[in-house]
Design a protein around this nucleic acid. Structure first.
Lengths: 112, 112
DNA sequence: TATCGTTATATCCGTACAAATATAACGAAA
DNA sequence: TTTCGTTATATTTGTACGGATATAACGATA
């Protein structure tokens, strides 16, 4: 009684990590801000780390997850593709389902 | 198509980690070898790390998970309590169930 | 009482990873 | 053509963590 169960899930593609919680946070922040640098600031992570994560996401995914532009009005920016949005949505749903599944599993043996 | 989903689960007690995959590996190795030092060797981890893990497990658990003895025949040793064995069994079962649950979840949206 | 292989603990050191910093390239717009 | 804020990338710096090492305490047995 009183034990809690926690989890982390991630999706891999060809042994490369595609999506985990951190990457999903980043993608959501990009969707909110329209730029990778602003997203990094909003998450209190370095631009370098954010860029590496996003680069890894786009290299692992079967279709582009973001479209990044350099120069131009505002200096450029980054935005989620429809595919990227669907990935985020799918991840969130599976993650939530996993949490409730695990809570039930733990409850089943609540004699520990 | 071709994406894989992976997970890590762990059990917490009062915001302290009680059991995760590494700790379960260690407990199984203790059960197999009868000593913490032999268990560490068999897992190729340092004794220090093994001791810290086991100490954390026993401090987090509501009942003792191992019984450790110093001195005496063989120098001492460590062995799982019945409670410890039941924890390991419960963790393994939940972990396996989680894997198959997540595989089904991913299959449900295999349009990504 | 001496020996032995443990558990238990402190200290030092190297290294891998993160953060910080610097800078180039870019393109729309003024 | 100059400016601007961005993406993209390399290099340096800092630090936290694990590994290595050393050693004390212990108790059954011979």
């Amino acid at each position: 009684m009183g034990y809690k169960i926690k989890s982390r899930i991630w999706i891999e593609s060809d042994n490369n990590v595609l999506l985990g919680e951190g990457r999903v946070h980043l993608l959501k922040a990009i969707d909110n801000t329209g730029s990778l640098s602003k997203a990094a600031k909003s998450l209190n992570i370095s631009y370098k780390k954010a860029w590496q994560l996003l680069d890894s996401v786009n290299k692992s995914a079967k279709k582009p997850v973001t479209i990044n532009s350099i120069g131009g009005k505002g200096g450029g920016g980054a935005e989620l593709t429809d595919y990227g949005k669907s990935l985020v949505k799918a991840f969130d749903e599976i993650n939530r389902n996993c949490w409730s599944f695990l809570d039930k599993e733990l409850a089943k043996i609540e004699n520990i």
